Amino acid sequence: MTTSIKQDVLDLLTDQHHEIKALFGQLARAQGADKRELFERLVRLLAIHESAEEIVVHPTARRRIAQGEKVVANREHEEDQAKRELAALYDMGVEHPDFDARLASLAEAVIQHATREELEEFSALRQNASPEQLRLMAGAVRAAEAMAPTRPHPHSGESATANLVAGPPMALFDRVRDGVRDWRQSHHEQD
């Protein structure tokens, strides 16, 4: 994974796509506590990743690429569907008998989405934004990720405005829930 300060936004997000794909693969083989931990990592990464894209990348793509509105609307629709399914899987839990089949279906949809995003949106942005703009956008994505919710919130909307308004309070709530969950797990393991 590229972590240089000079990394541009498209390389950063593509690296995250690779990490997401790897987590799906690991999850398909995992059991028990490992499966739960990997799923929590996946949920967090997807929620943060999509929020940052919605705040930083999609608005720029709308303005800078040919048919930007159509391309972004299609990606946002896919992201909304994935958020809803991810939230349902989170509520269901990794032990549910339908979890694996639904996770496999989500993995396929997310991987197809990432591929379309890279081919349609990212490649067009690379052609229509300067290298410096793309590097600056990477910094903006990192800042957006720092304040993004750690769980999908499908009813909050997928626009940049919705993420900027609702994101910080949801992120705070999510991080408190994460802390309580982690504390419970660590204390339960000691019993």
Rank of each mutant, 00 (worst) to 15 (best):
K21G: 10
D182K: 08
A171M: 14
L134H: 00
K70V: 15
L23W: 04
A30G: 09
F173Y: 10
A104E: 04
A109S: 08
H188V: 15
Q112L: 08
N163W: 07
M1R: 09
A143T: 02
I20P: 02
L45C: 11
L106Q: 02
R44H: 11
R64I: 05
A66S: 10
E54F: 07
Q185F: 15
N163A: 14
M137H: 09
E69N: 11
H58L: 03
R135P: 00
A28T: 06
L12F: 08
H188A: 15
R135F: 04
R36N: 08
K21T: 11
A101W: 07
Y90V: 02
G139R: 11
H188Y: 12
R44Y: 04
R41H: 06
G68A: 12
L134Q: 06
H113C: 01
L134D: 02
E121K: 00
H17P: 00
Q67K: 14
D182A: 13
S159C: 15
H77G: 12
L10M: 07
L125V: 00
E108V: 09
A87C: 09
I55S: 10
F99L: 03
P59N: 08
E69R: 06
A88D: 03
Q16H: 07
R116V: 05
N163G: 14
D34C: 07
H113T: 01
Q127N: 11
K6P: 00
D80Q: 15
L45Y: 12
D98K: 02
H58V: 07
I55L: 08
L86Q: 00
L136N: 11
D98V: 01
L119I: 04
L164R: 09
K21M: 09
A129C: 12
D34R: 14
R64W: 04
G179K: 13
A82K: 03
F122D: 03
S130V: 02
L27P: 01
D8A: 04
